[in-house]
Design a protein around this nucleic acid. Sequence first.
DNA 1: TAGATTGTTAATCGATTAACAATC
DNA 2: TAGATTGTTAATCGATTAACAATC
Lengths: 221, 221
Amino acid sequence: MSTTEPTDAATPDGMTPERLTLGVAARLSRYLQVLTQAKKMGKETISSQELSDYTHVNSTQIRRDLSGFGKFGKRGVGYNVESLVSQIRGILRTAGQHNIALFGAGHLGRAIASSDIFADHGFRVVAIFDADPSKVGMEVGPQRVRHVDELRAVVEDEDVVVGVLAVPPAAAQALADDLVEAGVKIIFNYSETLLQVPPEVTVHTSSPAVDLLYALYFYLT
Amino acid sequence: MSTTEPTDAATPDGMTPERLTLGVAARLSRYLQVLTQAKKMGKETISSQELSDYTHVNSTQIRRDLSGFGKFGKRGVGYNVESLVSQIRGILRTAGQHNIALFGAGHLGRAIASSDIFADHGFRVVAIFDADPSKVGMEVGPQRVRHVDELRAVVEDEDVVVGVLAVPPAAAQALADDLVEAGVKIIFNYSETLLQVPPEVTVHTSSPAVDLLYALYFYLT
DNA sequence: TAGATTGTTAATCGATTAACAATC
DNA sequence: TAGATTGTTAATCGATTAACAATC
C-alpha cells in the first residue's frame, strides 16, 4: 500500500451495510436483469457503457453504483458478467430461492407460469390457484391448479412470500384480503384494480400502459 | 388583484412549455393510472394523500408536481378525479388515440388483447400478428390474426406508433428489426431478450421479476 | 366556524454528470 | 506501448420533505 487510504469503506462480507436507498436498489435490480440475459446469451464481460445502452442509466452512474460495494471491474476490459451477477445478488440479498403463489389460470396466468421471467431471478411458482371449479385439477406446467380454499395451507407449507394476481378485476380485492390474512407481505397485481391493504404489505401494480404513456411523451415532444 | 405577482408563470394553453423532466413525466403517468382506476370505481374527488397511498409518491411531491401546471385542487376537498385526468392527459399530450400492433397470439398475446389495460389509456390494438400459419386467421377479440408479412402495410395504413412483442425470445430480435424498418419508434418488449435497435428507437422491456426483487429487498431488510 | 387539504416556501439530501488519473 | 475502460472527484442539478399560511 503506497497511499494512506483509511481502512476500506466498502462493506466487507458479513457486515451489515446501510440499507440501500430506493434509487440504488431499483437500479441494481435493473442491472441484474440485463446481466442475467447477457449471461444467457453467452456474454462473458460487459462494459458500463453497454449496461447503459440497455438500462438507459448513465454509465458513470453505473460505475458509481457498483464501486460503492467493491472493485468489481477490470480497467480496459469491463465487468465479468457472471461474477457481477453474484455480487449484485449478494448486495440485494436475493441470492436464494423465493416462492410465489400464482392466482388465475387464464391466459395471463398460464403465460406467467410457463415463462422464465420469474425463474431466472430465483422465483419459483409453487402453486397456481383458480376459483373456477372447471379449472381446478388442470395441469399447468408442472403444477396442478388448486382451489383458493387451499391458500392458507399452501402459504404455510411452502413458505410463500409473494402472491401474484392474474385474475379479473372483480376478484382481486378478495384475494388480496386472503393473502394478507395468510401473512403474505408482497402482492404483485396484474389486474387493474386499486387494492386496499394494510401499510406493512407492499402492492406492486403492473402498468404497461403507464410505461407506454411515458415513452410516448418523449416520442411526441 | 391585490398582490403584485408577475404574470402567471404556469403555462397558459397553447404555449409550449419546457419539456418535462424524466421524473415528472414518470410520476404524472402513474397518477394517471390511479386516477383512471379511481374514476372507474366511481370516485369523484381524491386527495394528494390518497394518491400517495396508491403510488408511493410523497403527497407533498404530488401537490408540487401538479401545482406546477395550474391550481387543479380545491382546499379542504382534494382534486376532482375526472378533471385531473384530462389535465394530466393534456400535459402529457396523450389525450388522443394511439395505435398498437401486437405480436404473438399465444397466451400472453391473447391476455393483452383482451385486457383493458391499454384501452383505458387510449391505446388501441389495431392488429395482431403471429408467425405460426395455424394461428393466422384465428379470431382474437375483434381482430383476425395476421401473418407477419403484412406488417409494413399495416403500420402505414393504420398509423401504428407502438409495437408490442409477446413472442418467444428467439423471435423477438427479428421482429424488432422489422418494426424498426417499418418506421416504428417505440417497442414494448415482453420477451426477455436484449434487443439491439438504433438510438432513435425506444425499447421498454417488461420486467416483473425486477420489480419483485426490488420489493423483496425492502421486505428482507 | 372548525376541519381538512391545497399551494408554496425554504432547507436538505441524493442523483447526475463531466472530467480525468489509474491501470488493465 | 496504445487503446480502452474503470474508479473517483468535484460541481451541479433536481427530488424530497417539513412546515404552514391560504382557503374551501
